[in-house]
């Protein structure tokens, strides 16, 4: 564990807490894409299958349970909780996110580090996570103005993988044979997809107004 990875995990944790805070306290998911949340639930479900077979550390297992629990409860809130579901913008959240799942699965079957069930699904979760934010970014474009909590959620979610890139650079120089091209490229693509959002986020943030 290094400071970059810890910062990345804490940023990721903060993003899900901000979203849970928004949904649970003000009972609103306005501006949040249910489709992105569904994709993230699949990402964690396919990435953390090894939670029962390989124990890395208490921290690792605890965080996996937090991410699994939060992603599925956010989907449940947005789908079935009356008050929250009412604030879901169904008409605008129309990105065909299931069209992202199949190509990621095919790509994982073609490009992976080891051809085993767990490893292929783990690789699939990497590819899917790289594009999972797309429905949310499209919804953002359509709803133009979003509240600060949603903006902070997206900012933290984009930032965590950026910190992971610093972690991979650090590990590459400090650990021999630490080379994971698939993870690195997927992480880079994922972070670059936020570039546009980060630009406007900083512009508005500096301007002191909401994110438009």
């Amino acid at each position: 564990m290094n400071i970059f990875r810890l910062a990345g995990d804490m940023t990721h944790l903060a993003s899900v807490l901000v979203l849970l805070l928004k949904i649970h306290t003000i009972k609103s998911c306005a501006g949040v894409s249910l489709r992105t949340q569904e994709l993230y639930a699949i990402v964690f479900a396919t990435r953390y299958l090894d939670i029962f077979t390989s124990f890395v550390s208490v921290y690792n297992t605890f965080m996996k349970l937090v991410f699994l629990g939060s992603s599925f409860s956010i989907v449940w809130y947005m789908r079935y909780h009356k008050a929250v579901h009412r604030t879901y913008d169904r008409e605008q959240d129309t990105f065909r996110h299931w069209f992202l799942v199949l190509p990621c699965l095919v790509l994982a079957l073609l490009i992976h580090e080891k051809f085993t069930f767990l490893e292929v699904l783990w690789t699939f979760s990497l590819y899917l996570e790289a594009v999972a934010i797309l429905p949310q970014l499209v919804l953002l474009q359509r709803t133009r103005n979003i509240d600060n909590l949603t903006g902070q959620y997206i900012f933290l979610l984009g930032g965590y993988r950026g910190l992971y890139i610093l972690n991979w650079i650090y590990r590459y120089f400090t650990e021999p044979h630490f080379v994971h091209w698939i993870t690195w490229i997927a992480g880079l693509v994922q972070t670059l997809l936020y570039a546009d959002f980060f630009y406007y986020y900083f512009l508005r943030f500096i301007g002191g107004r909401g994110v438009e």
Binding site: D50, V56, K64, E113, K114, W122, H177, T183
Partner: peptide, 10 residues
Amino acid sequence: QDQSHSHDEL
């Protein structure tokens, strides 16, 4: 289990 394939990252 060979370390290279046990994923220690989240």
